[in-house]
Design a protein around this nucleic acid. Structure first.
Ligand SMILES: [Mn+2]
Ligand SMILES: [Mn+2]
Ligand SMILES: [Zn+2]
Ligand SMILES: [Zn+2]
Lengths: 140, 140
DNA sequence: GCTGCTATTGATAATGAGTCTCAGAACTTA
DNA sequence: TAAGTTCTGAGACTCATTATCAATAGCAGC
């Protein structure tokens, strides 16, 4: 069971109850560093014998995303992927267009330039998506 | 009628026929620099009295995207947006999370760093998505 | 310009990720 | 324990996009 504290805190902030389903979904999301979709998370939970529904998975993920415990990724294949944010460092993604493998990257200079671009326009940066679609070394 | 040449070339390359529908869809896409979805393009054509169906709009857009005449944008709202690539310069996008306004940006340094990151991993960069979600000056 | 072959079109059905509904279950507080 | 409230799960629903397939249009050869 991974960090009920963060979950409880988020639920309290939202005025929501702490439940077995919500804990198990949060646990499952923290169980790996993969980038899984809602269906994969749902099926993992069912395989472990948890009593949970698709609707509750989606609803709980929304809460987790809203409270910054989980990040939602849209990779353009029609299904949203999710990753936990336990290890707080920001990163962006490389995606192999052949095999689908996902790698992570982070570049301070890019992050700074982004801020500059936005500030120069008088805007405020809320979040960003930066995805590099590649052919990985295995697939070349 | 905007540049039947590029369209005809792409159709020939794909072994496809040149049709009124395909020309009018390409014309409509070149008519503005906005970032419109398939439904908006479809409705514009119908308003102009063109005989065209949603299915053909989607099918033709696919051909245009595949042949680099049009770029597909996924902004996370469930509808894909499209922009023509007549003016060949690459750019990325800023999107206001409040009013939806879309601005464009381009930074050589970021483009170079992207290439470096990918090359260092031994990968090959195919394309990238870089979107800055902001609150624009009108919405602050 | 006709003929015949084949690609294209459009109406409509199907798909599928995600959302909504609502009755029953599970908490909470008194 | 009882009343009031939130949660859950099954399944209906949404809506952008894709698939189907009979009718139509483009095209090559005559
Ligand atoms: Mn990641
Ligand atoms: Mn643009
Ligand atoms: Zn690969
Ligand atoms: Zn705005």
């Amino acid at each position: 069971m991974a960090s009920p504290n963060q979950l409880k805190k988020a639920l309290k902030k939202e005025g929501l109850r702490y439940t077995q389903q919500r804990q198990s979904i949060w646990d499952e999301m923290c169980a790996t560093d993969e980038h899984r979709d809602a269906e994969e998370i749902y099926l993992s939970l069912r395989n472990e014998g948890m009593s949970v529904s698709r609707a509750t998975v989606y609803r709980t993920i929304d809460v987790l995303v809203k409270n910054n415990l989980v990040r939602k990724l849209e990779l353009g294949d029609g299904r949203a992927r999710y990753e936990h944010k336990m290890d707080l460092e920001h990163h962006d993604h490389l995606i192999c267009v052949q095999c689908g493998k996902i790698e992570e990257f982070m570049d301070e200079t890019i992050e700074e330039i982004q801020e500059k671009i936005v500030n120069n326009l008088g805007f405020k940066l809320i979040r960003h998506i930066h995805q590099l679609f590649v052919i990985c070394n295995n697939c070349r």
